[in-house]
Design a protein around this nucleic acid. Structure first.
Lengths: 234, 234
DNA sequence: CCTACATTGCTTGTATGCAAGAAAAGCGAT
DNA sequence: ATCGCTTTTCTTGCATACAAGCAATGTAGG
């Protein structure tokens, strides 16, 4: 099992839980509760939470507690906007490079996505669809932007769970395929344009819901909170 | 004075020291030494160091110590590459926006740069020249990219101190001016191109040195280490 | 019944103590 | 003198103890 547990591994687990919607936005993360959960002391939990704070996943209210962030509509827009800039830039800079290996890896990834869409749960699907973009940065050799995009895509995924995205996984997957196809054809300009549209589609799919119900977060939270984090019995 | 000292403020001070070349790449940061320096306990120092680790400024070797990172030539290239992508993207996306206020602020910033070039020390100059790029992202309303660029520019600045950049501050400042001028003229494509060239110029100014002497880091370290961090007498 | 206030409990913030481990120093043998 | 081994010292890793502050609950007064 997870015998060697360090702050970073705890942080990873929490991020996974957030992305898997086991931890809802706005949900409280008690240091003590987490410490008991992972069978470590508060020290390591605090370190993990601060890593997550630096990455923008949680925030702390002084002497009140740690909470999963609830991105405002504006913050969500900013995240999508940042993604458009970074990802379009990556594709633009890929002009005239050897892309064979990258394209093969991306095709493999898309195949994984398709399998997940057929069989896996919603959380796994969402993770893989976001990971495509991270994978793209990685294949293009931008290691620093990989880290940036990991957090950026996670943030947009968080926003999607918060604002009840109605986006179809199948459509995203198809759009990924189209981007890679354009890349393979050497048409980086088209790949770039497709990427911008793709991110726009994902963003739009939750913008319509934003106006519908402002209390969507609260409802979601109420639905998921009870099973979110199995506390130790008292 | 800095009466209220928290982990974040400590981290900021350390970053400033690194950027001001008071802490050289590869230099050791003892928890105890820092704790005494800031008159706090190791706990806060550790929190600060972990924040800096997450931002890529320091690294820890297990039970050995914390060290200011020494970016390899490849890592430095990656940082410049990431900056080109992000900053060119920001300018491209600024097409057809109201830019009056942003341009005014940027001009003010450039005026600060000029004053610093005439009067201030090298560290202040380097900081302001890097801050221009952060300021640009801020004025364009990309809050998330502000944080990204803050760390990215810091990393390139670190690389510049490590590889002995011979870049002229005056040239950078002039190039900043040209970028803003292009922006004011509504020629975002040109602004974007100028930005790419500008970052390329800064990068090239240290790439030539890379091939010259691989032991430059060691020499620099030896020069600066003795006065870097006043340790408590023993 | 409602409001103002004191008290209690629970949470984070910070410091300190102890253990594990790595490097350096001391030391003896060849 | 040098090599190999032991011991010592110094550093981080982690846990625990205590302090400070917020929030909720109970309570008395209007």
């Amino acid at each position: 099992m997870a015998t060697d547990v360090n702050p970073t591994s705890i942080a990873e687990r929490v991020v996974e839980a957030i992305l898997a919607q086991k931890l809802a936005p706005g949900e409280r993360l008690g240091e003590q509760a987490l410490a008991e959960n992972f069978a470590v002391s508060r020290t390591m939990v605090r370190e993990a939470l601060m890593q997550l704070q630096a990455r923008g996943f949680v925030e702390v209210q002084s002497r009140r507690g740690w909470y999963v962030v609830e991105p405002s509509a504006e913050e969500a827009r900013d995240a999508f906007s940042a993604r458009r800039i970074v990802e379009a830039g990556i594709l633009a800079e890929s002009e005239g490079r050897p892309l064979q290996k990258a394209i093969r890896k991306l095709r493999d990834h898309i195949a994984d996505e398709q399998r997940a869409i057929e069989g896996a749960d919603a959380a796994t699907r969402a993770f893989l669809l976001a990971d495509f973009h991270v994978c793209l940065a990685e294949q293009m050799g931008h290691q620093l932007l990989v880290d940036v995009l990991r957090d950026l895509t996670a943030r947009t995924t968080l926003a999607a769970t918060l604002y009840q995205s109605r986006h179809e996984a199948g459509q995203s997957c198809a759009e990924h395929g189209a981007i890679v196809a354009a890349l393979e054809a050497g048409d980086t300009a088209r790949a770039r344009q497709l990427m911008i549209e793709h991110i726009g589609n994902v963003e739009r799919s939750l913008e319509v819901e934003t106006t519908a119900g402002p209390d969507a977060p609260a409802r979601l939270r109420a639905t998921l909170a009870p099973v979110a984090l199995p506390r130790a019995r008292r």
